[in-house]
Amino acid sequence: MLKNLFAAIGVYKIYQRWLWYQIKDGKRPEHIAIILDGNRRWATEQEKSPWLTDKWGHKQGADTVEQLLDWCSMINVKYITLYSFSTENFSRQSEEITKIMQIAEERFKKLLVD
């Protein structure tokens, strides 16, 4: 709910401009590491399934990672580390794990040719 409020008042756009201002004339990072988390929470907040429909949380998360990778390429980040699946995630339903791994496989294959 708070996230929706921030989006409505433009906080994310302001934050995006601030981040760009930080790197536009200065040294850009060579390495960025990100822990991917919150796809299920996002889907629940959007009243969507984390993994059962076409617009589910994990797919939206993968789409966001793709946008992130494009941005990193645009600013010439040399190394990106994505922490995407912790050992705790293996306690989820097997169908969800299978879907997450399918998305990962599809996106990794796409990265190899993109």
Rank of each mutant, 00 (worst) to 15 (best):
I100L: 10
E45K: 08
T87D: 04
S73M: 10
E95R: 03
T81V: 04
E105P: 08
R92Q: 03
V65Q: 01
E106D: 14
G57I: 03
S84W: 00
E96Q: 10
I23M: 02
R28L: 06
E95F: 06
G38K: 07
I97F: 03
T64C: 03
C72Y: 01
A33L: 08
Q60V: 13
Q22E: 07
S86T: 06
A104F: 05
T87K: 09
E45S: 09
Q46T: 13
L2R: 15
T98H: 07
T44C: 06
Q46Y: 10
N76F: 04
Y21P: 00
E96I: 08
T44L: 09
W71Y: 13
T81C: 04
M1K: 07
I80S: 01
M74I: 10
W18G: 11
W42R: 08
D37I: 12
S86N: 04
P29G: 05
E105F: 12
I103L: 14
K78D: 02
I35V: 15
V113Q: 15
R41N: 04
G57L: 04
D70W: 07
K27F: 04
L69F: 03
E45H: 10
D54G: 03
T44N: 15
T53Y: 10
T44A: 13
S49P: 03
V113A: 15
Q60T: 11
K55T: 12
Y15W: 14
I32Y: 00
P29M: 07
V11M: 12
K99R: 14
E66F: 07
D37M: 11
W20L: 03
D25H: 09
R107H: 07
L112W: 09
E88Y: 03
N39E: 05
S84K: 00
K24I: 00
C72I: 05
L111E: 07
K27M: 11
T98S: 13
E30W: 06
H58R: 07
W51F: 11
K99H: 14
G26A: 11
I75A: 01
F108V: 15
K99C: 08
W42L: 09
W71D: 02
W56A: 13
R17K: 15
K13D: 12
L19S: 09
L52Q: 13
E95C: 04
D70T: 09
G38S: 10
G57Q: 01
Q16T: 13
I80A: 01
S91G: 11
K99G: 06
E45C: 08
E88V: 05
T44E: 11
S86P: 02
